[in-house]
Design a protein around this nucleic acid. Structure first.
Length: 557
RNA sequence: GACCCCAUCGUCUAGUCAGGUCUAGGACACCUGGUUUUCAUCCAGGCAACAGGGGUUCGAAUCCCCUUGGGGUCGCCA
């Protein structure tokens, strides 16, 4: 039976590159009725954390990628070949390490990290490639025994046999690593933990992994793994190395790229205060801005980073899976888009679900060349998927999203109002976050509203005869007496438009929109009024009219 | 620097393995026009690519070589 695995090291968050690797492993297993395993590679004691490991599980679960064996999480996990955290498998590695030492295929080495560091620096200065010089292999056995006896720190190195290595890869074809390219690499660190190379080989074998699908940054490592498998008497799994995913500018994606990009632009342009966006609002909350500027360790969250990038007119590079969740993307869409980075079903079909992926996926349609991550296309896909949801599905998704990210919307709206809010926003939302960003005015207190005299606001309120303010005043009177239904409201607006504005509904609707929202953007006007209710609508119109003199004066100056 | 990988519109890609059906198809972005009470949609149309050079062949986006460009690796990180 085909068995694949995703084996992340639990530092930070699951990155889109890692997510795509996991997706391909999963799709391959599902396609072949095989098993997909998750293994946490936490052999780096300094950097790994259990919480990060759990975070990876949560990210995969959100994406809809389930695993048959691995850490137990949600409905996934369990299995006979565990434990699935490498830090709990030390004994297993110890057994295999001993075998290699006894067979003379591995040996202790006593150089300190500092010594190795300076040797490497020397090689670099001489412009030659550094390889470990096997000094420890030439040590007198008695010396070695004595040093070990006295507890001197040492690593175990694998004695690399000579000869070229042929890697058969399902994506790249055959890759040859020439003789002499590999040094005697470390397989056990001084702290007793195995290195990645050793642990991965042992675990893949013991867990019965038949297909190793991973990023191309591992291609060179594969030669080491092949050698280790032979030394340990393991079968070679099938390998498939996936091309990397790049930032739009062509550089490799890395965890801090977003922040780095923003900081360098801000520094370069000498910007001290939050830049304003297209609507004149600060792109980043001033408090957040100050925190961010004062500490290099504090990264802006995705929302702030995105709006800052827009205000600066730069494109933001990479992103974690969790960033996309928080930014209001649908998991199925992210899965769909990620699948398209390096794979396609072969015809013009681009939008598909997980089932389609599983039934059509195969390694021979995986592309060799690297891909750049295009957020605009992802966003377009998300829009399409949002439009295809039923109103109930959209409502439920939006409610879940609010609960997790913006509970204030649920606190300020009763269930039926929230339902109206969802319905009014579905067809104009590209993400679940959109209606929340553009709809803040729904939950802000009326008194907090202000009417900035931007050009479109001035035009709608001051221009024409009668002007928007005049129409608003009339509207206030009429709305007081009308029944608060979509039909009745429409009758009032169209009626007034017919009487005073030459049937131009916009002449009435736009001042009204500005009065109740503070700006020029809102859901369709009758929906907006319904969500707001009569009291707040009238209150806001009154407040807007009170501000008339000030705005008129401001506009005149 | 050494070794390795990659190369079709701005981007993701189909076509490459089995050379002709490719005056190179789709999607996103962009541009133009239209619909719309704002925003977002939506509709119609348009722009746009086989990195360069050599070879093989009746015929090359497809096969081979070189160049150029991009990327990865060279850790007691994974």
């Amino acid at each position: 039976m085909l068995r694949t695995r995703f084996a992340p090291s639990p530092t930070g968050h699951l990155h889109v590159g890692g997510a795509r690797t996991a997706l391909f492993c999963w799709a391959l297993a599902r396609h072949s009725q095989g098993r997909f395993l998750l293994r946490i590679e936490d052999t780096d004691r300094k950097r790994s954390s259990e919480s990060a490991g759990l975070g990876f599980c949560a990210d995969l679960e959100w994406l809809g990628i389930d695993w048959d064996e691995g850490p137990e999480h949600g409905g996934s996990g369990g299995g006979e070949t565990g434990p699935y955290w490498q830090s709990q498998r030390l004994e297993l590695y110890g057994d295999h390490l001993s075998k290699l030492v006894e067979a003379g295929l591995a040996y202790p080495a006593f150089e300190t990290p500092d010594e190795l560091q300076s040797q490497r620096a020397k090689a670099r200065a001489e412009k030659t490639a550094y390889r470990y010089d096997r000094a420890a292999l030439n040590l007198d056995p008695k010396t070695v025994a004595a040093w070990i006896e006295e507890g001197r720190e040492h690593v175990l190195r694998f004695k690399v046999p000579s000869g070229e290595i042929r890697i058969k890869d399902e994506v790249l074809g055959e890759v040859v690593v020439p003789n002499g390219e590999l040094e005697d690499f470390v397989i056990r660190k001084a702290d007793g933990y195995p290195t990645y190379h050793f642990a991965v080989v042992v675990d893949d074998a013991l867990m019965g992994v038949t297909h190793v699908v991973r990023g191309q940054e591992h291609l060179n490592n594969t030669a080491k793994h092949l050698l280790l498998q032979e030394a340990l008497g393991f079968e070679h799994p099938v390998y498939a190395h996936l091309s990397l995913i790049f930032n739009p500018d062509g550089s490799k994606m890395s965890k801090r790229d977003k922040d780095k990009a923003l900081r360098s632009v801000v520094k370069e342009r000498g910007i001290d205060t939050p830049p304003v966006d297209a609507s004149g609002q600060p792109a980043v909350d001033p408090d957040q801005w100050d925190r961010w500027r004062s500490s290099k360790d504090h990264q802006l969250d995705l929302v702030d980073a995105t709006s800052l990038a827009e205000a600066l007119e730069i494109e933001l590079p990479e992103i974690d899976v969790d960033d996309f969740r928080r930014a209001g993307y649908l998991p199925g869409v992210l899965v769909n888009y990620l699948a398209l980075l390096g794979w396609s079903p072969g015809d013009d079909k681009e939008q598909f679900d997980r089932d389609f992926l599983c039934s059509h996926f195969s390694l021979d349609r995986v592309i060799k060349s690297p891909a750049k991550f295009d957020r605009a296309k992802l966003l377009a896909f998300n829009l399409d998927a949002m439009q295809e949801l039923t109103p109930d599905e959209f409502h439920d998704l939006l409610a879940d999203y609010c609960r997790a990210e913006h509970p204030e919307f649920l606190e300020h709206m009763d269930a039926s109002t929230f339902r109206l809010f969802a319905a009014a926003n579905q067809e104009r939302s590209k993400t679940l976050l959109d209606p929340l960003q553009s709809g803040r005015f729904f939950i802000d207190p009326c008194e907090q509203l202000s009417w900035e005299p931007t050009k479109p606001v001035r035009k709608a309120l001051l221009n024409g005869e009668p002007c928007g303010y005049d129409l608003l005043a009339e509207l206030a009177t009429r709305l007081e007496q009308v029944q608060w239904t979509s039909e009745a409201l429409e009758a009032v607006v169209t009626g007034l438009a017919g009487e005073r504005a030459g049937d131009k509904i916009g002449k009435v609707a736009q001042p009204l929109r500005i009065a109740v929202s503070g700006g020029t953007i809102s859901p369709p006007i009758y929906d907006t009024l319904l969500i707001l209710g009569r009291d707040r609508t009238l209150r806001r119109i009154a407040l807007c009219l009170e501000a008339r003199a000030a705005l008129t004066a401001e506009a005149a100056s």
